[in-house]
């Protein structure tokens, strides 16, 4: 916005980076939080042994969340619903939006598999009544049903093709995961994600006011390539 920005040279910035106080123990806890929230059970167990950081939840719950997530990511919505109810039936009872999104995902999976008859029956019996409950549900239902208008998936316009993407499955899975975590009084999202969002916010604000060295992806993807720093 302004022509004159302060310039913070690299050595100056490096010094400031060093002045930020953070310990390995702090970062270990961030990593443990990530492993737990994202459901990497065996990694969390190993990490607990190797680093001495204790997770805030028991490992069994990590595993069951992981299973639910994996079921959704491979398209097995019914399995996921059963497992969520095994864990705590109240999660779906008290969260109509979540339950609707799971049902919507189920419909998407029918369509993806080309099971048109099942898709139609399921939509009419399960989803249509819910669509009447809220305008938001109805809009989503309409968007999903639009998928049936196309002969092949390749013809689906971009506006709705995202429903068929793995991202849609992950979105639903993330929603379920967050709801379970909330029922366990855990954070909904890994703190690591919070850190990254904060980085994004802080860097962009500071960028308006000063020139300074930015975070680069190559810091963790390897040298200048995407090679892993093993």
């Amino acid at each position: 916005m302004s022509a004159s920005k302060a310039v913070i040279p690299k050595d100056e910035w490096d010094r400031r980076l060093e002045e930020v106080v953070v310990s390995k123990a702090d970062l270990n806890r961030l990593v443990m939080d990530y492993l737990v929230i994202e459901g990497y059970k065996s990694a969390a167990e190993e990490f607990s042994l190797e680093s001495g950081v204790q997770p805030a939840v028991d490992f069994a719950s990590i595993e069951s969340r992981r299973n639910i997530r994996e079921a959704l990511n491979r398209g097995d919505v019914q399995e996921a619903i059963t497992r969520v109810n095994d864990l705590n039936p109240e999660i779906l009872d008290t969260n109509p939006a979540l339950y609707f999104h799971l049902q919507q995902q189920k419909l998407i999976e029918y369509i993806r598999q080309g099971k048109i008859t099942e898709a139609l029956r399921f939509a009419q019996e399960e989803l249509a009544p819910r669509g009447e409950e809220s305008p938001e549900f109805l809009a989503e239902l309409e968007r999903t049903m639009a998928l049936l208008a196309f002969e092949s998936s390749s013809a689906v316009p971009p506006a709705i093709s995202d429903l068929l993407s793995p991202g849609q499955r992950m979105k639903t899975a993330g929603e379920v995961n967050a709801a379970i975590l909330e029922s366990l009084s855990q954070g909904r999202e890994a703190k690591l994600a919070g850190l990254l969002k904060l980085l994004q916010w802080g860097e962009s604000l500071l960028e308006e006011r000063a020139e300074f060295p930015k975070v680069r992806r190559k810091w963790w993807t390897g040298l200048d390539s995407d090679q892993l720093c093993l």
Partner: peptide, 11 residues
């Protein structure tokens, strides 16, 4: 990760 934390803090 540490770099990112520090970068965020310094910013």
């Amino acid at each position: 990760l540490e770099r990112i934390y520090r970068q965020t803090g310094a910013s």
